[in-house]
Design a protein around this nucleic acid. Structure first.
Length: 887
RNA sequence: GGGUGAUUAGCUCAGUUGGUUUAGAGCACCUCCCUUACAAGGAGGGGGUCGACAGUUCGAAUCUGCCAUCACCCACCA
């Protein structure tokens, strides 16, 4: 097999991905092996791959491929989320562009458009994941609105309703006037927003609806809501306002009379101490209203416009109305002053519209028991959060979880299975037929057309919280007693979940709730939280900033393996990722290095009669030990989810140890312009090492490793590195590693001397070294430092040259004519002075009785060794200096 | 306002219960080299009083306290 001089990912990646697909290597069926399961965090069905997905899915793929090679039955279930608000708003926008308004369509017509949109755009992201190399079991692809998964959602609703945990209630909700739906508290983002604090005069009424001369002053940021005021409220302890007791005041402009009430909610030292109470348009005011039995007057409609109940400015948008009413108040003499003011304002996460508190009937799921269970799951350690500092946040949320508002005023999603009777009663049943039967139990005369199903759909998270269960057995959610099917019984609980910490409550916590409720078991053992992908400057990647590269462009340019490396290099759990293209370049360079190292090996001629040279034999022995050591390290990193550390360990093993040291030692020399052959033993060992290295790096770089794995030898029709077993942890000889390190230090020392003296690498040198260096490692030094002779001596003699230290062993390079005695003396004196200072430090420590009394023996022994080493170095420096001075 | 985390080389980060660390890695940087795997490369090299201060200890990047800066989360005073 001929290899091109440069690695070209475009010739490799699609080829192997298709091969994997054809051979169904990603597919998993239950068998006798231990399962290893991951469910994908389902991306929005109409979403497009961004860098966050790349990070997340690369991590997922590394874990799943590693598990597969570890001999587990690895199953990664892919799929998409219907993302009700996001998708519906996209469809609405598209229709709007075509001149169609959602209000003009029936529910059925709108859903047809939505499904058409889904068919057209849905699943693009899954196709994109293939470019990344994701080894998902595509045969198991799921969508949260697949018929059977929707059924699971409905069954779940019915189950909780019948359990008494779902109720319908009128609540102040976060209304999104753009999306025309309620959103949950978690979907509201509070941002400090510049606004104004308007001080308004409210005149005291004379009891006949006419103003007197007296007035009070309230401060508000929302003057457009005064028409909905139900009272003015002061703190009962506030003596400044006691004169207002029992009085009534008139709302400016419309002159409606409202009472002055007292409630300790009002802060005395904020604003004027007088609060206008607007129960319909403020959460706190609503609660005050409930306590004081105030009427609720709603003057803002679903679109955020004033309605006729406002009496004035009817039909105006709330923000336009604010500007206009300020002017009107000023003209009427009610505006006392205006202050600049920065206050937190709630914005919709999805549409960025300013949230309008709105009173409406919604469905809620009680969180009490579920939250308690989900807290226990994590506190008991059955599910581990990585990094574990998320535990505190998690606990806080679980202990303070408010009931979950699960209804959304949308059409795209699972419709709430509540059916209203003509008299307003309702029944909750999984199907219209069952609902009719239930209704007829109340009133036998009812017919199907008398029932009206609730218009709302369920929150998307109310379907995705079932994901780890429903992807395997959609019959299970809602039916705790249902016998799990074969898949669910085998794959559940899943092993690891990789996701962002931003959805810890939306999704992670709720999956745990559903898992505990329906399976009686946690849905996953580990949750690995990734960071947010940011650009070099620390800014979040976003479309509006334009600082997010298109992952597909990157893959096309550098290759998926390189992109995966680039992403992983700096991805430690829980930390934000500062992405920079240079990291991807590093990944590409690594591909090139791997590629070329194989080209080198592959080009060698093997002579079967040849015995391994001393250098080759020691190199093989060393690398085997080194390999074993790193395998152990890598396994340890994986066990702690330290993926980037695992990658770096393999990277260095491959690049530094294998390429820069091992291959350079065994690389056959050229004789008369012809490369010499290599002995078979070393060659076979080298290929074995190379294959092991490929296997180690395969989870991170699936494509190039598959390509080269096939290039190593002829593989059978359906073989793949994907199922080649991971290298096993084996013992290693630390002594060999230490001795080789000394050889490396000797080589580095000689190279450094060459550099300083300007001696070309081609020019062979002679080395003398004293006792203390294992002679069997000298051939390594000889080869890599280009030495014509290496001898172990007791005395360096009187030849001119340069000496240097390898740990405590003195070495000497013979050089004539290149040695500047003064320079060498100065250098040695500097090192001697440093060493003496170091020795003094060590001795100070050792002579401290409290140190020798308290410190463990191993620490003291180490200090003594430092002392001895230092002494021997000093002795050596001194004798070298003496020799130089006498020369 | 409450909480969590971070602060170590120019950048991104390791440093696992305080002692084999005289603080490491990758990238970047500097010098030399287009040498017969790879210039997307090779060889060598410089660079940090571990955010500040105080304390505990024989010993602190590591533990405690306080402060500073940054990030995120939760709650939201009209």
């Amino acid at each position: 097999m001929d290899l091109s001089a440069k690695y070209d990912h475009s010739l490799v990646e699609d080829k192997w991905y298709n091969y994997w697909l054809e051979k169904k290597f990603f597919h998993s069926e239950p068998d006798e092996r231990e399962p290893y399961t991951i469910v994908i965090p389902p991306p929005n069905v109409t979403g497009i791959l961004h860098m966050g997905h790349v990070l997340n899915n690369t991590l997922n793929d590394v874990l799943i491929r590693k598990a597969r090679m570890d001999g587990k039955n690895a199953c990664w279930v892919p799929g998409t989320d219907h993302a009700s608000i996001a998708t519906e708003s996209k469809v609405v926008a598209k229709l709007k562009a075509q001149g169609i308004s959602k209000e003009d369509l029936t529910r059925e017509e709108f859903l047809q458009h939505a499904w058409a949109w889904k068919e057209e755009h849905g699943g693009i992201i899954l196709k994109q994941l293939r470019k990344l190399g994701a080894s998902c079991d595509w045969d198991r692809t799921r969508f949260t609105m697949d018929p059977d998964l929707s059924e699971a959602v409905i069954n779940t609703f019915v189950y909780f309703y019948k359990k008494g945990w779902i109720y319908k209630g009128v609540r102040m909700v976060n209304w999104d006037p753009e999306a025309l739906t309620a959103v949950s508290d978690d979907e509201v983002i509070h941002k400090d927003t510049k606004s104004h604090f308007y001080h308004l005069k409210y005149y005291i009424s004379d009891g006949q609806g006419h103003p007197t001369d007296q007035y009070l002053v309230i401060a508000t940021t929302r003057p457009e809501t005064i028409m909905a005021d139900a009272a003015i409220c002061v703190n009962p302890a506030d003596e400044r306002h006691h004169w207002l007791r029992g009085k009534k005041v008139l709302i400016p402009l419309i002159n409606r009379e409202i009472p002055v009430i007292e409630d300790s909610y009002v802060e005395m030292d904020f604003g004027t101490g007088c609060l206008k109470v607007t129960p319909a348009h403020d959460v706190h005011d609503y609660e005050i209203g409930l306590r004081h039995n105030l009427p609720v007057l709603e003057i803002i409609d679903d679109h955020g416009k004033l309605n006729e109940k406002a009496q004035i400015l009817v039909g105006e948008d709330r923000f336009v109305a604010r500007k206009k009413i300020v002017k009107m108040l000023e003209e009427a003499g009610n505006l006392l002053k205006v202050e600049e003011y920065i206050s937190p304002v709630g914005y919709s996460e999805r549409t960025d519209a300013v949230i309008e508190p709105k009173l409406s009937a919604q469905w809620f799921l009680k969180m009490g028991e579920l939250a308690k269970m989900a807290l226990e799951t994590v506190e008991s350690g059955r599910t581990r959060l990585i990094p574990d500092r998320y535990m505190n946040t998690y606990r806080h949320w679980m202990e303070n979880a408010r009931d979950w508002c699960i209804s959304r005023q949308l059409w795209w999603g699972q419709r709430i299975p509540a059916y209203y009777l003509p008299d307003g009663q309702y029944v909750v049943e999984p199907t219209p037929e069952a609902a009719l039967a239930a209704a007829q139990a109340i009133d036998p005369s009812l017919r199907a057309e008398d029932l009206r199903q609730d218009e709302d759909v369920l929150d998307t998270w109310f379907s995705s919280w079932l994901w780890p269960i429903s992807v395997f057995d959609p019959q299970k959610p809602g039916h705790p007693d249902h016998q799990p099917n074969k898949d669910l019984a085998y794959y559940y609980p899943t092993n690891d979940l990789v996701t962002g910490p931003d959805i810890i409550f939306f999704w992670v916590a709720r999956m745990i709730m559903a898992g505990e409720e329906f399976m009686g078991k946690e849905p996953f053992s580990n949750v690995y939280f990734t960071g947010i992908v940011r650009d070099k400057l620390g800014r979040k990647m976003s479309k509006t900033l334009g600082n997010s590269p298109d992952p597909l462009d990157l893959i096309a340019k550098y290759g998926a393996d390189a992109v995966r490396i680039g992403m992983l290099l700096c991805a430690s759990a829980g930390n934000d990722i500062f992405y920079d293209e240079s990291q991807v370049e590093q990944g590409r360079n690594f591909c090139g290095k791997i590629w070329n190292s194989f080209r080198l090996i592959q080009g060698w001629k093997v002579d079967e009669t040849l015995e391994p040279s001393a250098a080759n034999a020691i190199a093989v022995k060393w690398f085997q030990n080194k390999l074993n050591q790193v395998v152990e390290t890598v396994e340890d990193h994986y066990s702690k989810f330290r993926i980037s550390d695992a990658l770096m360990a393999i990277y260095k093993l491959f690049w530094d140890d294998f390429c820069s040291w091992f291959l350079e030692i065994i690389k056959p020399a050229y004789v008369d312009g012809q490369p010499s052959p290599i002995d078979k033993k070393t060659y076979d060992a080298t290929l074995g090492f190379f294959e092991t290295l490929l296997k180690m790096i395969h989870p991170v770089m699936p494509f190039i490793t598959e390509e080269l794995w096939h290039a190593i030898s002829d593989r059978a029709e359906d073989e793949t590195i994907m199922y080649a077993p991971s290298p096993k942890v084996q013992p290693y000889d630390a002594d060999v590693l230490v001795k080789f390190e000394m050889a490396q230090e000797a080589v580095n020392g000689i190279r450094s001397i060459r550099n300083q003296k300007g001696i070309a690498p081609k020019e062979a040198l002679t080395l003398k070294c004293k006792e203390g260096f294992d002679p069997s490692f000298l051939p390594v030094v000889e080869k890599l430092a280009n030495l014509s002779s290496v001898t172990t001596v007791e005395d360096f003699g009187s030849a001119a040259g340069v000496s240097f230290m390898v740990r405590t062993v003195e070495m000497f390079i013979e050089l004539s004519g290149l040695v500047n005695v003064e320079e060498e003396i100065a250098k040695l004196e500097k090192e001697l002075a440093y060493q003496q200072k170091f020795l003094a430090g060590v001795r100070a420590k050792l002579s401290n009785e409290r140190f020798t009394a308290h410190a463990p023996e191993a620490v003291i022994a180490n200090e003594r060794k430092k002392e001895a080493d230092s002494l021997s170095k000093i002795e050596s420096y001194e004798s070298q200096l003496k020799a130089l001075r006498n020369s």
